[in-house]
Computed example of a mutant assay.
Amino acid sequence: MKVGIIGLGAMGLGMARRLAQAGFLEGVYNRTAAKMTEFNVTHYNQPETLAADMDVILVCVSADNDVLEMVDAIASTIKPNTIVIDTSTVSSETAKKAAACLAKKHAAFLDAPVSGGVEGAKNGTLSMMVGGDAAVLEGVRPVLAAITARITHIGDTGSGQATKAINQIMCAGINQAVTEALAVAQAQNLPMNKVIEVIAGGAAGNWFLDHRGVTMTQGEFSTGFKLALHHKDLKIAQAMAAQVGVATPLTDMTVTDYQQLMAEGYGDEDISALYRLKVS
């Protein structure tokens, strides 16, 4: 089974390294060619040529238009029975469009967004939520096990992305809670490392506090999940919630906060940069 990956950004690079270490990776494509040089596999100049050679193709790009652009490109050369796995975070509607496009070529599609951050991609501990044919998923599960700690089949095409939108709403709430609480602690001149350590060990402990608590209180926001990308994801979540008539006041507040931070030039920082607004 020949496996290739399209997209070597912060998440894609970590996943590609894990696939290479596991002996699965056969080819890579990235718009910035320099990112491919570390991999001792075939480097492709176009996604179409990669698609012609591979049995399984992982896609990890930033936005809906990027996914559809890549799918349209690979559909021109893809072989029947190829499996395309999109790990990007996009809308359910985009996933369904991609699946329909590939179905015309008798290729399978799984929408398989992930959660766990760049650390999870690096360490192979991502949580993957999958929409699409369960039998197709079972066929590629050994490949996906190289990059994940948990793989859950949610349901039909698009359900993986819908679940990821729920994840992103929760992340917004956690970000708001953690940054606000730590801002209050800092305003009281409490020893921040001790505060974070003791809270992390109790009922309020969470991944975000563990991995971003200390760095945010030290004014360090360079690593992790880009704020502008979470903003993009929350806009998807807002639209999804609006379709079913559910109010999302916390998500709406986070989108507004992110817009302010992006306007101030912090869009490429980690989402913990929300702390800037809490202590200002």
Rank of each mutant, 00 (worst) to 15 (best):
A177D: 07
V178N: 11
V178A: 13
V178H: 15
T179S: 14
T179I: 15
T179N: 09
E180D: 06
E180P: 07
E180L: 07
A181Y: 13
A181G: 15
L182P: 10
L182Q: 11
A183Q: 09
A183C: 13
A183R: 14
V184C: 11
V184N: 09
Q186E: 15
Q186M: 14
A187W: 03
A187V: 08
A187F: 02
N189M: 06
N189F: 11
N189W: 05
N189D: 14
L190G: 12
P191E: 12
M192Y: 04
M192D: 01
M192C: 03
N193T: 13
N193R: 12
K194Y: 12
V195W: 01
V195C: 12
V195D: 08
E197T: 07
I199P: 04
I199R: 12
A200D: 09
A200T: 03
A200Q: 15
G201L: 05
G201Q: 11
G201T: 06
G202I: 03
A203T: 10
A204N: 13
A204L: 12
G205P: 00
G205L: 03
N206H: 07
N206R: 12
W207S: 12
W207V: 13
W207M: 06
L209T: 08
D210M: 04
D210S: 11
H211G: 00
H211V: 00
H211M: 02
H211K: 06
R212P: 01
R212N: 13
R212A: 09
R212Q: 12
G213A: 05
G213Y: 03
G213H: 03
G213M: 02
V214L: 08
T215A: 14
T215F: 00
T215I: 04
M216D: 07
T217C: 07
T217F: 13
T217D: 02
T217V: 10
Q218G: 05
Q218R: 14
Q218S: 05
E220V: 11
E220T: 09
E220P: 02
E220M: 07
E220A: 12
F221H: 03
F221C: 00
S222H: 10
S222L: 03
S222G: 10
T223C: 01
T223F: 14
F225A: 09
F225E: 02
F225K: 05
F225P: 01
K226H: 02
K226D: 00
K226S: 02
K226Y: 01
K226A: 10
K226C: 01
L227F: 11
L227C: 07
L227S: 07
L227E: 03
L227K: 02
A228D: 04
A228Q: 08
A228N: 04
L229G: 01
L229R: 00
H230K: 08
H230S: 08
H231T: 07
H231D: 10
K232N: 02
K232G: 04
D233A: 01
D233V: 00
